[in-house]
Design a protein around this nucleic acid. Structure first.
Lengths: 256, 256
DNA sequence: TGGTCAGGGATTGTATAAAGTTTCGCCTGT
DNA sequence: ACAGGCGAAACTTTATACAATCCCTGACCA
């Protein structure tokens, strides 16, 4: 039990009881949005925590615990957790509760195969939809990634690294691919955490820069190729050996 | 409001109050599965109804109504509807309720593009995983399809037609692709219902037979090609013109 | 005659409470 | 001293009750 959940929203972090009572009265017109946003906020909070490797695979996600943190009742927490389960980053065991998912090596291979198939197509579409606005956003993102890496912020680094792919998907305008990829990226984050060989700093930022360059030049074939090799390289850095289901945790505990 | 929901489970249809009390006691070991199955049954029931074109796009899916049909409380109905919303065949509008989704032509193009990308890969994997058992199941499925078509059962026909693709995906053993494709097939069913030109009988059964033949011969390139042309042909039969949102229904009503 | 506005009815969103299940601790018997 | 079983606590699951929202209808006014 050495794992510490540590769910910290970056922004608003008011006392729970306040949040439940102050918001419904503060704004009548936005009340409708707020209701739905409560679920979204929980979902995104947990997702970010997982993407930043603050929540580790196997961590118990108790409904009461999360509900208290976000000042929401279990009903809302439950729907958020179910949505995350559908995305594959949370696994719900009947009468046991929700846990951060622990993808198997087989899952890992499937995820990366799917990404190798989908992402080149996404880059293709992104190039079709290229615009100064988007190039600006991409450039800005590269800067953020670089900054995080320079400052040695591993958590932001790993999150931004995945977000780059999400950004390209969004840029493509293909909502279905974007939706699929969002799930794949979230799972990839867990996979990298579980099966990475060395502690190499996230996936290479330089690759992302090259991809952006190819997009700017509207060089489809090169962009596709770069994306493919980028993904292949990430997967090559993984050590996908069957860890005998959930035994490694036992050995970890014994080792400590 | 001429649309009649008509949700009919084929099998067990006991009085609601009985279902809630009899089942939990009937089997202690299966109790765990039963609880989850209540949601699954609702989900699958509605899904099947949509796949068989018994539920038309835009139909209101009231929580009370469905809950009464399946003898479940709104809580369970709600989770089922949310899951279906995530699959894209139900759209939930805040404070309005759930409706059978009405894919736009843009959605349609995206769905088929995604299928054209994914399904050839799926056939590839299916051929890798080919076995006498699976060939048997495929053959049996072709027989069912043929039987439904011969008997003129359009509903079963359209459902089985989609199920063929799902079967191949399952056969491939690639759970992620299978999951994605399941969503895509469900949406395709709605798309075909909305935008089909002629009333040609579902998608060509003969194509399916040819694909099975290619799978049996383990001829990957041919199987891929057949799958691709099959999907292209289905899409070619669609008339993907912006129908100005929901105006066509008006004209329908005026015509009747 | 057409438009605006308020009230009624219905439906959804949320919270709370009851029920069932699992797990852990403790106690007893061998 | 150890194994097995009983019991309580914590959790999830399900159901129900309450509150908020929206649509529809009808009346009133320009």
């Amino acid at each position: 039990m050495t794992i510490e959940p540590q769910i910290n929203e970056p922004t608003s972090n008011e006392p729970k009881s306040m949040a439940a009572k102050a918001q419904p009265k503060s704004d009548t017109s936005l009340a409708a949005d707020n209701g739905s946003d409560r679920v979204s906020r929980i979902r995104e909070g947990v997702t970010t925590a997982i993407l930043e490797h603050r929540l580790l695979p196997g961590t118990k996600l108790g409904e009461d615990e999360i509900g208290e943190i976000y000042g929401a009742s279990r009903t809302l927490v439950r729907t958020a957790l179910h949505q995350l389960a559908h995305e594959g980053i949370v696994s719900i065991e009947k009468n046991r509760g929700a846990f951060v998912a622990r993808p198997t090596p087989a899952d890992a291979r499937e995820v990366f195969e799917a990404r190798r198939l989908i992402e080149p197509s996404i880059v293709d579409h992104a190039i079709d939809a290229v615009s100064p606005d988007w190039l600006e956003r991409l450039q800005q993102h590269l800067a953020e990634e670089h900054a995080a890496e320079t400052r040695g912020d591993a958590r932001a680094s790993i999150r931004l690294s995945g977000e780059f792919h999400r950004l390209v998907a969004e840029m493509s305008g293909h909502s279905i691919f974007a939706g699929f990829l969002k799930e794949l990226i979230a799972r990839s984050s867990l996979i990298i955490l579980l099966y990475r060989r060395h502690d190499t700093p996230a996936c290479g930022t330089s690759h992302h820069a090259e991809i952006v360059t190819a997009i700017r030049r509207q060089d489809k074939s090169r962009a596709r190729e770069l994306m493919l090799s980028h993904l292949t390289e990430i997967e090559a850095e993984l050590f996908l050996k069957e860890p005998a289901a959930d035994e490694p945790r036992l050995s970890d505990v014994l080792g400590a």
